[in-house]
């Protein structure tokens, strides 16, 4: 400890102890590190897109745009078409959304507008827990519990009652099916849609509700006006859920039956883009087979990118308006 005590500084030694180095080097290095980390996100997403596009080239060169519209999937003959998987992905996700939307929007309304205090925190927590359950756990539960239950109590009665007249419900209802995939997807996207929609509803200012009450509206009428203001954000939450449904892999793979052909009946097995990749990627022995699987990945990527961007823009537009 040096002792250059100046007249104004009775405890002056301290300043002379402090490092006199310029802070510029440290700052520059630190900012550079953080900037690289920040850029890594952009880099990774770009790299994923580029890599999928590049590796899809052999397939695109071989089959052209008809890859999307052909329904052959014959690895032995190296003849590939994506239609059954696109169909399976779209139909299972849309069916899932039909089931999930009313339930999750209902839950969002319950959380944002009705429940208070401990009830709200408990239900919120349970819905978060629902989102946290790993896909493979839903899968094993789906295989051994949900599919047998659905087959016995839903699919078989439906097929017996209406199967003859409605092709959508045509038998045989033997187990793994588009329907079971849709149900498991609905269970998995519900917490996502519900929590985002809840946040959107909570972003609507209290004043709007009070104004409606002041006009003598009933509780439901108040909620309806709030839903009106939040509709685009809620739509965004739904689209976000759709994005998750499109890309979900494990649980669907385990319950959809993995049949690469298109059946009109939802009681029969199907196949999705992500499932076929999961099942066949390590078995793809030829470059073209592998490339065909990557191209399915590219289709999935483009679909989820578009869906996610739309969803984000919608959700943010509501959040921004009421910030």
């Amino acid at each position: 400890m040096s002792a250059d005590v100046t007249t104004t500084s009775p405890i002056a030694p301290s300043r002379s102890l402090l490092s006199k180095r310029s802070s510029k080097v440290g700052n520059t290095v630190f900012v550079a590190i953080c900037a690289v980390a920040g850029a890594s996100v952009l880099l990774i997403v770009t790299a994923i897109v580029v890599q999928l596009v590049v590796e899809s080239q052999p397939t695109i060169r071989r089959f052209g745009i008809s890859f999307l519209t052909r329904s052959v999937w014959d690895p032995v003959a190296e003849d590939f078409g994506a239609l059954p998987f696109i169909y399976g992905t779209l139909v299972s996700s849309l069916l899932a959304m039909i089931i999930a939307v009313p339930l999750s929007v209902g839950a969002a309304i319950f959380l944002a507008e009705i429940a208070r205090g401990w009830l709200r925190s408990v239900v919120s927590f349970l819905i978060e827990a629902l989102a946290a359950v790993p896909s493979v756990v839903y899968g094993i539960w789906g295989v051994f519990i949900l599919v047998p239950w659905l087959t016995e109590h839903v699919a078989t009665p439906l097929a017996e009652r209406w199967g003859e007249h409605i092709p959508l419900l045509a038998p045989p209802a033997i187990g793994p099916s588009m329907l079971s995939a849709a149900v498991i997807l609905a269970i998995m996207v519900t917490p996502i849609v519900a929590s985002v929609a809840r946040d959107v509803l909570s972003a609507i200012p209290r004043m709007q509700r009070e104004a409606a009450y002041a006009l003598g509206a009933t509780r439901w009428e108040v909620i309806r006006t709030v839903l009106g203001s939040a509709r685009w954000g809620i739509f965004g939450a739904i689209v976000l859920g759709l994005g998750r449904a499109l890309g979900e892999t494990m649980a669907v793979t385990m319950v959809i039956g993995n049949d690469p052909s298109i059946h009109v009946s939802i009681l029969q097995p199907a196949y999705t883009l992500s499932s076929v990749i999961a099942n066949e990627f390590t078995e793809a022995t030829t470059p073209l087979y592998l490339s065909a699987l990557v191209t399915l990945g590219l289709v999935l990527l483009l679909a989820t990118l578009v869906v996610n961007i739309v969803a984000r823009v919608l959700v943010w537009s509501v959040a921004r308006r009421y910030r």
Binding site: I44, G247, L301, T304
Partner: peptide, 24 residues
């Protein structure tokens, strides 16, 4: 911009990350 891309990344199907890692 980074926040937006982060959200997009959050929404990418995880199977695609497998394909990507396989390649790199």
């Amino acid at each position: 911009a980074i926040r937006f891309v982060t959200e997009i990344m959050l929404g990418l199907p995880s199977i695609l990350l497998g394909i990507f890692t396989y390649a790199v």
